[in-house]
Design a protein around this nucleic acid. Structure first.
Length: 421
RNA sequence: GCGGUUGUGGUGAAGUGGUUAACACCCUGGAUUGUGGCUCCAGCAUGCGUGGGUUCGAUCCCCACCAAUCGCCCCA
């Protein structure tokens, strides 16, 4: 217990950090390219922000939040996603001032209390993008393209992009009513969950995985048939832009995002080989959220990518670049009397920009040589009492096994020349 | 919240109701005086997830808990 990280959390160890740095670098690269600026918001927020933003009846808010009362009696929640917080920061800091369109991205930990399984953790990492202030469907497209291109840039193939429109406050109620009419006499055949969904959010019945519910929902009206003129037009223009960009997608009238704030465009990128948790990215437009949180009506679009899932996929496909870590020089010191001189030399090498290591345990030469070998050292500098007396050291090339005596004065220059050449 | 599988050293793992818990890797030391990668030798779990119970006796049997893992719900 004491020695175990809490359930659903993981340490990222030195051996694994390279993957994360690589991912983050790719993220910053593409976001810079598309003109999105990084933002970092607190890991926790007032509980109310998520209740209002995400929606009281969503699973995330109902059963997955890490909520606690702080010492001041405030209800605080570890962020389960970053869109609501980004919008909060956008409003609080008036990021809308001076521009029509604010483009943000973030990378960070999110927290959801859920049973861990492949590709799902209680603390997990998302990369996400938000574009606030523009209703033009070109922005929807830009966002989707960014998500797809990002994943492609990592080498992933066979991604599938699903696209839908979930309507707006004008047309969604119409659809909702039509759905309820459709399911009215089928209600008793639906699973328990769906029976309660019938009242709360009938659209969710459509993507229920129960056989029965699937069967019963055959022939159900589709949202795309009920869209108002504005939503219909918006949707078709998004598709146009995507086609123009050469992005392939499938329309999925049953795609319903789990968070209440979505309007119009909803999309999801799947990577099938991942198994049960194959959704790698998801997002859409959320024109009502800014107002919900207390700002003036502001159209917005965004998405989030699950980084653990991406990493899982990259691992499966062996797409992670392996960076062999080598060290330029390993200093071998023979005997206590030369420790100080060796230490001095080590520091001088580092000051010169060389990567240098040495053994501090006072071990035998053989042991130190083994260590140098294991550390992948290109050169070994041997310092014994003779050398110190002569103000020199033995320089050994570990690849060729050639070695020569070099004076203290020239050794660093020589090494620098060798390493850089 | 529900279900399946699993839980032996740093790692991968064999194993038994009863003196010394295989084997491999890793690691550490050594194979004539200051030289690595190959080879050889030696060392390396008073302990078998935790807590109870059964028993003369349990790592091996039973129960609970915890954790890992996969799935359901939902999501990234």
């Amino acid at each position: 217990m004491l020695m175990n990280a809490p359930r659903g959390t993981k340490d990222i160890l030195p051996d694994g950090i390279g993957q994360w740095l690589y991912l983050e670098q790719k993220i910053r690269e593409i976001c810079g390219c598309y003109g999105y600026k990084e933002i970092r918001t607190p890991l926790f927020e007032h509980t109310e922000l998520f209740q209002r933003g995400i929606g009281d009846t969503t699973d995330v808010v109902e059963k997955e939040m890490y909520t606690f009362t702080d010492r001041g009696g405030r209800s605080i929640t570890l962020r389960p996603e970053n869109t609501a917080a980004a919008v909060r920061a956008y409003l609080q800091n008036k990021l809308y001032a001076g521009t029509a369109l604010t483009k943000l991205f973030y990378i960070g930990s999110m927290f959801r209390y859920d049973r861990p399984q492949a590709g799902r953790y209680r603390e997990f990492h998302q990369f996400g993008v938000e574009a606030l202030g523009e209703m033009n469907p070109a922005v929807d497209a830009e966002i989707i393209i960014l998500a797809v291109r990002f994943l492609e840039s990592l080498g992933l193939k066979d991604l599938s992009l699903s696209l839908n429109s979930v309507g707006c406050p004008q047309c969604r109620p119409v659809y909702r009513q039509r759905l309820q009419e459709f399911f009215k006499d089928k209600l008793s055949g639906l699973c328990e969950d769906c029976q309660s969904r019938y009242d709360r959010n009938p659209m969710r019945i459509l993507d229920c995985k129960h056989e029965q519910c699937q069967q019963l929902s055959i022939g159900a009206p589709e949202i795309t048939d009920c869209l108002c003129d504005e939503c219909r037009d918006h949707f078709s223009r998004v598709q146009e832009y995507l086609r123009t960009a050469g992005i392939s997608f499938q329309l999925d009238p049953r795609l319903v995002r789990g968070l209440d704030y979505y309007t119009k465009t909803a999309f999801e990128v799947k990577y099938a080989p991942l198994g049960a948790q194959s959704a790698v990215a998801g997002g859409g437009r959320y024109d009502g959220l800014v107002e919900e949180i207390g700002g003036s009506p502001t159209p917005a679009v965004g998405f989030a990518v699950g980084l653990e899932r991406v990493l899982l996929a990259l691992e499966q496909q062996q797409l992670l670049p392996a960076l062999p870590d080598a060290v330029d020089v390993f200093v071998v010191a023979l005997g206590e009397n030369v420790q100080t001189a060796a230490f001095q030399l080590l520091m001088a090498m580092r000051s010169a920009g060389l990567s240098a290591q040495m053994d501090f345990a006072g071990r035998s030469m053989k042991a130190q040589m083994k260590q140098a070998n294991k550390a992948n050292a290109r050169f070994v500098v041997i310092l014994g009492e003779d050398e110190v007396r002569e103000q020199a050291a033995t320089l050994r090339n570990m690849q060729t096994s050639e070695q020569e005596k070099v004076t203290m004065k020239e050794i660093i220059n020589k090494l620098c020349a060798e390493v850089k050449g």
